[in-house]
Design a protein around this nucleic acid. Structure first.
Lengths: 223, 223
DNA sequence: CGTTCGTAACAAACACCGTTCGTTACGTAC
DNA sequence: GTACGTAACGAACGGTGTTTGTTACGAACG
């Protein structure tokens, strides 16, 4: 048997968790989660899919590691009592955008939110900002959850919009207007209004009313 | 070639969209979306996977049809001005539970929310209830979106909890407490509080503060 | 310096998946 | 009684995640 030279290339860099995650993120950014298959990731590293299982137990573990690196890139906001509310908007928007930049990762990770280091880092920051706003531990924790739901929702929704958002809005609005008016009086009457507002406006509104509601409810209970 | 008798059974009922969706939902309920493969659904109907493509263009179309039937089962709340808020809680909770009863459907449908009849039916109801609460069209539409984000978030999260919720809470809390206290002062200090509250309490809280916030913001702007 | 040995990498195989397509069989309309 | 459109079939294609037996490496040891 002739000695197959699997190593005739000049010292190919060995695999590592870092290298694998890096290759995976590259594919994820450009082609989405579905394209981030074990074979594709392995091919990007010039190896076979099986080799990845030395470093990750399965695809899910790889996805979690990828998510962790994405989450780690989000810049936090050291809480300042005088502007905690804008800080909250800022860090949540950055989190949303980081997720949007990696299509599919949000839906995959929602299934069971990983308790990784980067996630904890984010949650700690959210709690700090809500504490700065005067919320108690329980309200802060529950509100952080509520806010995070808005982030994931916005991230998933953003991944669908492909072409011109205004064009899409016009199209959806037209579809709404064509529904039977007797069965859908409100949707047909307010079709244009329903799709109004751009992506950031709606996200900002959602975050804002959640914060406002949390504050009011806390005040009502203690006052 | 001997005539293979593919039809020696006594007049097998022919396929139909209804029958296919019914079989799919059966698998979905008991084994989740992943198990709801074209082959499994076809096998349940004693046919081949290819036959399903006469009625559905692809798996996604089948999933959408399945979702539509699930959404159609949610009982609506004809708006009454004197109790619109509890009505909102009720219909949102029912929607959440319908989604939870069909594991995986929420994440699959979030990717791009279907504009099916049943979805519109729900949205019309939400708008009606928010109108009854005094919100204007724009606020009602944006708030309905925000509320729906909470529903999907809760539904996805609920699908993960398998065993005793209290046991899981204790476990997560223990994990939180073990984090480095210097880096995660809030999480470690309030580990028990963070995981406090059962599933329904947290959901109810989230819906409540969203509504409260929307009302307050609307009043602040018009007053 | 030579050998051993744990482990990383490989490549093939397994059991699936969604989807396509050529072919067969049916029920109905003529 | 026959022709025909269409539904059903079943095999095949190109993929997927994962497992496993085998090879080759590189570092530690005698």
């Amino acid at each position: 048997m002739s000695p197959r030279s699997t190593r005739d290339r000049p010292a190919k860099a060995p695999l590592s968790e870092e290298a694998i995650v890096g290759a995976a993120i590259g594919i994820l950014r450009s082609e989405g989660l579905e394209a981030m298959s074990m074979r594709r990731v392995a091919a990007a590293l010039d190896t076979g899919a099986g080799s990845l299982y030395v470093y990750f137990a399965n695809r899910e573990a790889l996805i979690e590691a990828v998510f962790d690196r994405v989450a780690a890139t989000v810049e936090l906001e050291p809480p300042r009592a005088d502007r905690w509310r804008e800080q909250l908007q800022a860090v949540l928007t950055r989190t949303r955008d980081a997720l949007v930049a990696h299509p599919g990762i949000t839906a995959a990770v929602m299934v069971d939110p990983p308790r990784t280091y980067a996630s904890m880092r984010l949650q700690e920051n959210l709690l700090g900002l809500l504490f700065a706003g005067g919320l108690g531990p329980r309200d802060a924790a529950w509100t952080a959850d509520t806010l995070f739901a808005q982030v994931t929702h916005a991230a998933v929704e953003a991944e669908t919009r492909t072409a011109d958002p205004a064009e899409l809005a016009r199209q959806v609005s037209a579809n709404f207007a064509q529904l039977p008016a007797d069965e859908f009086p409100l949707i047909t009457a307010h079709a244009a209004t329903i799709v109004s507002g751009d992506f950031d406006q709606r996200f900002h509104y959602a975050i804002d009313i959640v914060i406002e509601g949390a504050l009011r409810k806390a005040k009502a209970e203690q006052g």
